[in-house]
Amino acid sequence: MSKTLKLLLITLLISASVFGQRPDREKIKALKIAHITEQLDLTKEEAQKFWPVYNANEDAENKLRTKSNERGNRKNKELNESEAKALLLNMVSIEKQRVGLRSKMINDLLQILPAKKIVSLLQAERSFKRKMIEEFKQRHSGDRGSRKRN
Rank of each mutant, 00 (worst) to 15 (best):
L42W: 02
E78H: 06
F50L: 02
N55H: 11
F50W: 02
M91Y: 14
T43H: 02
R102C: 01
N57V: 01
N69C: 04
A86D: 14
A56F: 00
N90R: 05
L87Q: 11
R74S: 14
E83T: 03
K63F: 05
K49P: 05
K63V: 02
T43Q: 04
K63R: 13
K44C: 01
L79Y: 14
Y54Q: 05
T43V: 04
V53N: 06
N69R: 12
A47L: 04
Q48M: 10
G72Q: 14
E83D: 08
K77A: 14
S82N: 08
A86H: 08
N76V: 09
V53I: 08
R71C: 04
K63C: 01
D41Y: 01
K75D: 15
E83N: 06
N55L: 09
V53A: 10
G100T: 05
F50A: 01
E45C: 02
K67N: 13
L87H: 10
E46V: 02
K49L: 15
W51F: 06
P52M: 07
K75H: 15
K104C: 03
E95V: 01
T66W: 11
I106F: 03
G72T: 12
S68Q: 13
N57S: 08
L89Q: 15
E45A: 06
N76L: 13
E58Q: 15
E46H: 02
S68V: 02
L42I: 02
L89E: 15
R98L: 07
V53D: 04
N73T: 06
L79K: 07
S93Y: 11
S103P: 00
R71H: 12
L101Q: 08
R65C: 05
E61D: 06
R98S: 12
N73F: 08
I94N: 14
N62P: 00
E83H: 08
E70N: 08
N73V: 01
E46A: 03
I106V: 11
R71A: 12
G100Y: 04
R98C: 04
E95H: 12
E81P: 00
R74G: 06
S68P: 01
N73W: 11
D41R: 02
G100K: 07
V99G: 00
S93W: 06
A84V: 01
K104V: 01
P52S: 07
S82R: 05
N73I: 04
G100M: 04
N76T: 11
N90I: 03
N69Y: 10
L64P: 03
R65N: 10
A56P: 00
A84Y: 11
